[in-house]
Design a protein around this nucleic acid. Structure first.
Lengths: 112, 112
DNA sequence: CTTATATATGAATATGTGTTCATACATTTA
DNA sequence: TAAATGTATGAACACATATTCATATATAAG
């Protein structure tokens, strides 16, 4: 499993850009981002997410629906509960990179 | 310059999550994402971005202001024009990872 | 200084969206 | 079957925001 570095990003079609933007937009809501983070390590049930993040189960469910639809999270039923987990590892990379970006020191030379 | 892989993401404060979400939200708009992509390789002027993406200079400028504020892009004046370019390389990595995510094959076993 | 070009800004608007509440569905247990 | 628990769904609302239009600012040229 390779990790690209310094790759030249070329987005083919216009649809591809929209598809990418949709994913970023999904991660652009604090509640949803926290839900994603809560699912990154171990599968976790809807109720536990709600408790851990202090959000209503209804709200969590709404967000989970979007994240499922975007193939960010996967759902697995265990009895009465449904456990959610990351569908693949790329989201973790995306977040790691963004964390690195936030930690980037400011360039004093820049205008603005 | 190292690239983390399989890192465990831990977001410290609540503010950190909001800060991250803000960045993702900025990339979540197709126009803005296209503007970012246009600035990734070489510095490009506001007018050229507008022409290349077929957007009004006003709209481009509005978006550029947000991207500057979020330290995604940097601005550099050259005579009458102002050239924009990526402030660091992390955004490129973020986009690369997300492209990889989109290209991820579907898991047939999943429910939904 | 005046004109032209390039970019930025502010207001206004239409559209999108996060959240809540009530309710429905599904699964387990009594 | 009935009750209880866990999750999902739909409507409604308040709020955010992407875009347009008009206008302002800044730099270069005449």
């Amino acid at each position: 499993m390779k990790v690209k570095r310094q790759a030249v990003v070329t987005i083919g079609t216009e649809d591809a850009v929209v598809q990418l933007a949709d994913l970023f937009r999904l991660m652009g809501d604090p509640s949803r981002l926290r839900i994603i983070l809560a699912c990154l390590n171990d599968p976790i049930s809807v109720g536990d997410i709600a408790i851990r993040l202090e959000l209503s189960p209804s709200l969590v469910s709404h967000h989970l629906r979007l994240l499922r639809g975007a193939r960010v999270l996967r759902a697995e039923r265990r009895g009465k509960q449904i456990f959610y987990s990351a569908l693949d590892e790329h989201i973790r990379c995306v977040i790691d990179d963004m964390v690195a970006h936030v930690g980037e020191p400011l360039d004093i030379e820049e205008m603005d």
